[in-house]
């Protein structure tokens, strides 16, 4: 493994001065993505700024009903926190559907948001990959592209899926990402945090150089709603999603008063299906209705030779989740 300098940050402000969200000076939290990719020499770091001693490990309810999560809260701590289990069950379910026990113990909230794609051509360090080597091409297009390659939000430059489960739940819930930069703090709406690959797939997020995520604040839970995270994958545990859905839905007098739908495993970023949400508004739940919503959510999909199955699978993971939340009797 390449050598690098090591600095331990004593404050967020100091960390922001020394480290960066991209390039050769990087922040170290759990390390489950970073050290993996440094070993593969995919991330060519020169300095690691260790932020693990910063006081960013709290989960705090705010007076306006939101929940503020320190960036260093582990995936395990977040998934099992009583307030998360009670107010955001889909977030707890999404976290526990990701990775393994020991990885969740190590991985952090901010690190999960910042995790890199699982595309083999990105990770192998050799193949054409515009993310790793801008302008080199995309070996996944026309290559093997079954499991971790997207059908929504793709471009001619990159088709890798965003691998996080947690982020799909957060996309449905809504959140603000608070970042510390050299000139102070700012908030980025979660929906704007991850970028589509477009013509610059090496730009993955809205952070400026030297900005450090300090907190993620979840929107207040939707009163009277029900929610769930559903993940479909090649094996029952410890596997990335082929398709997943995070659904929050509130019924009023038998009609859908509000719906928030997000998809994972099928898109290049945590994917909010806003058109399908609008379509459901005011309508009575039924399988036929949900099938139409699923079709809407996957409309515009661009598939490869290997991942066309994700279009019906994406529909189904949404339909099944909506069905189980609103039509229990019918599905029994």
């Amino acid at each position: 493994m390449r050598t690098f300098d090591y600095v331990r940050a004593d404050s967020s402000a100091q960390a922001a001065k020394q480290g960066s969200s991209q390039g050769a000076e990087v922040f170290l939290a759990g390390g489950t993505t970073l050290l993996d990719l440094v070993k593969l020499d995919v991330m060519k770091v020169e300095q690691i700024v260790d932020i693990n001693r910063l006081p960013l490990k709290q989960i705090e309810p705010l007076s306006d009903g939101r929940l503020r999560i320190g960036t260093l809260v582990s995936n395990t701590e977040l998934a099992t926190h009583p307030l998360v289990r009670e107010r955001y069950p889909l977030l707890s379910q999404a976290l526990l559907a990701g990775a393994s026990t020991q990885l969740r113990n190590k991985a952090t909230t901010g690190g999960n948001v910042m995790q890199r794609v699982r595309c083999n051509y990105f990770r192998d360090g050799i193949s054409a990959c515009n993310k790793r080597e801008p302008g080199s091409g995309c070996a996944a297009i026309g290559g093997l592209s079954r499991s971790v390659h997207a059908v929504l939000g793709t471009s001619e430059q990159c088709i890798a899926t965003h691998p996080s489960d947690m982020c799909v739940a957060m996309a449905a819930i809504g959140a603000q990402v608070t970042v510390q930069g050299p000139n102070g703090l700012r908030d980025i709406p979660f929906a704007d945090f991850h970028l589509l690959p477009g013509d610059s797939p090496w730009r993955e997020h809205a952070l400026q150089p030297h900005e450090l995520i300090t907190h993620i604040t979840l929107d207040a839970p939707l009163a009277g709603s029900q929610s769930a995270y559903l993940k479909l994958r090649d094996r029952a545990s410890y596997q990335f999603a082929l398709a997943s859905s995070a659904v929050i839905v509130r019924l009023e007098s038998g009609r859908i008063a509000e719906a928030r739908l997000a998809l994972g495993g099928v898109a290049t970023k945590p994917w909010r299906a806003t058109e399908a949400e609008r379509f459901l508004m005011g309508k009575r739940p039924s399988l036929a209705l949900f099938n139409q919503a699923g079709e809407l959510a996957m409309r515009g999909a661009v598939t490869t030779e290997h991942n066309a199955f994700k279009v019906p699978l994406g529909q189904q993971v949404l339909v099944r989740n909506l069905r189980d939340l609103t039509l229990q009797e019918a599905s029994a």
Partner: peptide
Amino acid sequence: CTLLVNGVAINSCLSIAVQ
């Protein structure tokens, strides 16, 4: 490579010792 750090199970291959 699983072991316990402060009682918590982690993958020791994904930690640098200095942290």
